[in-house]
Write a protein that binds this DNA or RNA. Structure first.
Length: 206
DNA sequence: AGTAGGATAATCT
DNA sequence: GATTATCCTACTG
C-alpha cells in the first residue's frame, strides 16, 4: 500500500534530496474536498543550502517555520496581497527544502473548480501556482497540515507512472536570481504547463 | 501573439 | 518602508 511500481513509498521520496522529490511529484494526485488535480509542473527550493530564491534562505521565521520540520507537510504562503501558493516540505527535519506546486490538470470535480474560477477555459483552471490553490480552495487553513494522511488536502502517487523521458527542466519562474539553476520540472507537451516568463522588475513608484 | 502595468496586503529589515 | 516563488486587463503590432 502506498508503494509505487519502483517500490519506493511517497514519504521516502519526499524525505530525500529535493530534486528527485520534485521530479517524483510530477503526475501525483492532489485532492482537496471533491476536487482532484494531477500535477504537471513543480519547482524545487533548497532552503538554507545556498539557494537565494528560497523563502527560508535567510533563516527561520514564523512564516516559513514548517519548512524546517519533517517532510510531507504543507507550506502555504500568501503573496502579492491576493494569492495563495502551496509547497510540499521535503528533506529531513531541520533542512528547509520544499517543492512549489506550479500547475496541474483538473481530473475530478471540474465543475466545482470552474465555479471557483470564473470566465476561464478548463486548461487554465490550475495553470499557475495561485490558480491551482484557488481551484482546490486552498488557503491558510491548510498551512502545516500533513498531506499523506487524512487531512483537508491529500497527496497520492501517480495513477500511472510518468516516464522519465517525458520530464523536462528549466529555470524557475518569477525569481530574481539563480537563473542558472534548472530546478523547474514539468511534463513535456502537457497543455496545462504555464509558459515561461521572466521576472518583470517593478519600476519605482512616482 | 506578446508585453506592460496595476491591484493589494502580509512579511521582513 | 520596501519587497514579493502572481494574476488579470488592456494595450500594441
Amino acid at each position: 500500500m502506498g508503494r509505487s511500481a519502483g517500490g519506493t513509498a511517497l514519504i521516502d521520496l519526499l524525505a530525500g534530496p529535493v530534486l528527485p522529490a520534485a521530479r517524483g511529484l510530477l503526475g501525483c494526485l492532489l485532492s482537496a474536498g471533491d476536487v482532484t488535480v494531477r500535477l504537471t509542473e513543480v519547482e524545487a527550493y533548497a532552503g538554507t543550502a545556498g539557494d537565494p530564491a528560497s523563502h527560508a534562505h535567510r533563516g527561520r521565521t514564523p512564516r516559513n517555520a514548517v519548512m524546517f520540520g519533517p517532510p510531507g507537510y504543507a507550506y502555504v504562503y500568501f503573496t502579492y496581497g491576493m494569492h495563495w501558493c502551496m509547497n510540499v516540505v521535503t528533506g529531513p527535519e531541520g533542512e528547509a527544502s520544499a517543492v512549489l506546486l506550479r500547475a496541474g490538470a483538473v481530473v475530478s470535480g471540474i465543475e466545482l473548480a470552474r465555479s471557483r474560477r470564473r470566465s476561464t477555459v478548463d486548461r487554465d483552471l490550475a495553470r499557475g501556482p495561485a490558480r491551482l490553490c484557488s481551484a482546490l480552495g486552498i488557503d491558510r487553513t491548510v498551512y502545516g497540515t500533513y498531506l499523506l494522511g487524512d487531512g483537508p488536502v491529500r497527496l497520492s502517487p501517480p495513477a500511472s507512472p510518468v516516464p522519465p523521458s517525458t520530464v523536462e527542466s528549466g529555470p524557475r519562474v518569477g525569481v530574481n536570481g539563480a537563473h542558472d539553476r534548472p530546478w523547474r520540472f514539468w511534463i513535456a507537451g502537457d497543455p496545462t504547463v504555464s509558459p515561461y516568463r521572466r521576472h518583470t522588475p517593478r519600476r519605482p513608484t512616482p
